[in-house]
């Protein structure tokens, strides 16, 4: 009995060590662009960080397999059951979707996760922190967080309506 208990302890310790020192499964790179929305203050599909109430932001994220360095395609995302969402300060989560490359209304080139968000008309101005979380069906997770945004840098900056 003691041997079994010891085995459990050893397995537990090994599992803990494996968890602590495990290599990440994924890396995420992301940005945000202005999209064609009810209000538009500049060109669309251009990386941007300053928006106005009523404008639509699209958060964009590519997921990279940490083992191979390969960027995941639509088929990989489907096979792994990968989900992604945007966590935007003061807002509900924004669910992201991953359309197949070459699909309807999808620009040419590699595809990636997209998270559209229309800024409410009454959103207060200011700097809002954000990050993106991904998780696959096995429970592997990864996070993208812009550097320095805890104090407003790289955040979503909402300007007062002009």
């Amino acid at each position: 009995m003691r041997r079994i208990q010891l085995s459990f302890v050893v397995v537990g310790v090994l599992w803990l060590l494996a968890t602590v020192f495990a290599n990440p499964t994924y890396f995420v790179k992301a940005d945000m662009v202005r999209a064609d929305g009810p209000v538009l203050h500049g060109p669309v599909c251009v990386p941007n960080s300053v928006f106005y109430p009523g404008e639509k932001i699209v958060f964009r994220a590519s997921v990279i397999d940490a083992l191979t360095g390969a960027e995941l395609a639509f088929e990989d995302v489907q096979a792994r059951g990968l989900k992604a969402s945007v966590k935007l300060e003061g807002h509900d989560d924004v669910a992201m979707f991953f359309p197949p490359a070459g699909g309807a209304d999808v620009p040419p080139g590699p595809s990636f996760f997209r998270g559209p968000f229309v800024i409410p008309a009454d959103a207060p101005a200011g700097a809002y922190a954000w990050h993106i979380e991904v998780m696959d069906a096995q429970g592997n997770t990864a996070t993208f967080e812009p550097i320095g945004q805890t104090f407003g840098a790289n955040s979503v900056t909402i300007q007062a309506q002009q």
Binding site: G37, P38, V39, P53, G54, K56, G90, H91, D92, V94, A95, P116, F117, V118, P120, A121, D122, A123
Partner: peptide, 20 residues
């Protein structure tokens, strides 16, 4: 415009978590 904005918010499935 507000109506359209509100509609798009609903369509994108996102709500604005208002402070009190």
């Amino acid at each position: 415009m507000r109506f359209l904005t509100g509609l798009l918010v609903l369509l994108t499935g996102v709500a604005f978590a208002q402070l009190p």
